[in-house]
């Protein structure tokens, strides 16, 4: 009887553990894009629907993150060290509306 309870406990720990791993694989993750030397790094980022992307400005010039090219969504200007995040629900092209030649892409993957 004792060994039965023991194996139940072991089993439930195992199942719970596996469940947990599966859950964390499906749960949204956070990706970081650095804004450095007038570039979004990486320029192309692959994410899953619902993931969060955080942009961090490492330059001493202000930059922003804006939907290309209608600014339908956008951050405010980010000073050095400041960051901004967005939950991604679709494939997006974006740019810095202050330095219009700076471009980036987020691609949804399944």
């Amino acid at each position: 009887m004792k060994s039965f309870i023991k194996s139940i406990v072991v089993l439930s720990i195992l199942v719970f553990g596996i469940n947990n791993t599966i859950c964390s694989q499906n749960s949204p993750t956070t990706h970081t894009v650095l804004i450095k030397k007038m570039k979004f790094i990486p320029e192309v980022l692959k994410v899953k629907k619902g993931d969060t992307v955080v942009w961090i400005n490492k330059d001493f010039y202000p930059h922003d993150v804006s939907k290309y090219d209608d600014n339908a969504w956008h951050s405010s200007p980010l000073d050095k060290g400041e960051s901004w995040s967005k939950i991604v629900t679709e494939t997006e092209e974006y740019y810095c509306s202050l330095h219009v030649v700076m471009r980036g892409q987020i691609i949804l993957t399944n």
Partner: peptide, 16 residues
């Protein structure tokens, strides 16, 4: 060296 990428971005922006 750090200033160069900004100047290059400004140049492209100006050309646009």
């Amino acid at each position: 060296e750090d200033v160069l990428p900004a100047l290059q971005a400004h140049l492209k922006h100006a050309e646009m």
